[in-house]
């Protein structure tokens, strides 16, 4: 796993507006959002449903484009990038962790982790090494041949994390990564994410409704009605449950 060496912002969101249209109706979701994340940041985004946090996450992950303003991630202005170029960019720079894990049910843990690597020019030998390393990091080196249905929820989410880090991305985006897990498994996942941030200096953005999960991040950003309400540095952020 590589570590970033410069201090340029990984994420730079400037005066971003995002509107959705439903027939004649225009629904504003983000209204002049600004955000900056440095390499190694670990940001938790909180806020009620409809506050715009998922939309902001989509914009930063390159899944959607702003109505106005700029979203620059890893030096790439995502608003000005074509869809096909964005797909390629995502495969190199972003790792995704979903609430429902979203593993491919017909592929083994190994193959799920390998999937994003098939988009890279890596040799088969290099892919094998990276997949094994990723699965070892999440503690599932002995579950490589298991299909998702043969794994517990916590293990599925760990495979999902392995898939997210397999390509060694600069940024990891996680949406409610513990939302579907019991307390013990959730704690293990949060611990793993803390480790990714501390040990491997991954920049992480996590959407959560759980204040105790947010407290594990370095920063907590709270949103309401498409605007930033607060941006707090969590000085007591730790890898273990308080």
């Amino acid at each position: 796993m590589s570590t970033p060496s410069n201090t340029d912002p990984v994420v730079l969101v400037r005066d971003v507006y995002k509107e959705f249209r439903k027939g004649e109706t225009v629904i504003p979701v983000l209204a002049g959002m600004d955000l900056e994340l440095l390499p190694g940041d670990y940001l938790a985004m909180m806020g009620p449903s409809g506050s715009g946090k998922s939309t902001l996450l989509n914009l930063i992950a390159g899944l959607d484009k702003p109505t106005s303003g700029s979203v620059i991630v890893c030096g790439q202005d995502l608003g000005k990038t074509s869809q096909s170029a964005l797909a390629k960019w995502r495969s190199r720079h972003v790792g995704f962790i979903f609430q429902m894990y979203n593993l491919i049910p017909v592929l083994t843990a190994y193959e799920n982790v390998e999937l994003p690597l098939t988009l890279t020019p890596l040799s088969r030998k290099q892919r094998v090494e990276q997949v094994k390393t990723a699965l070892e990091i999440v503690g599932l080196g002995d579950r490589m041949d298991h299909y998702p249905r043969q794994l517990s929820g916590g293990q599925e989410q760990r495979v999902s994390i392995a898939r997210a880090i397999a390509t060694d991305p600069t940024l990891i985006v996680a949406d409610e990564p513990t939302g579907d897990l019991d307390a013990k498994s959730g704690n293990e996942i949060l611990e793993l994410m803390h480790r990714l941030n501390e040990e491997f200096h991954k920049t992480i953005i996590m959407v959560t409704h759980d204040p105790s999960a947010a407290a594990r991040a370095k920063r907590t950003l709270t949103m309401a009605d498409g605007r930033l309400v607060s941006d707090i540095q969590n000085s007591t952020a730790t890898g273990t449950t308080a």
Partner: peptide, 16 residues
């Protein structure tokens, strides 16, 4: 639908 979206999210192109 979700699986296809996940594939595209992790970088699968339209062609793929």
């Amino acid at each position: 639908i979700t699986e296809i979206a996940v594939l595209k999210a992790i970088g699968f192109s339209k062609q793929r």
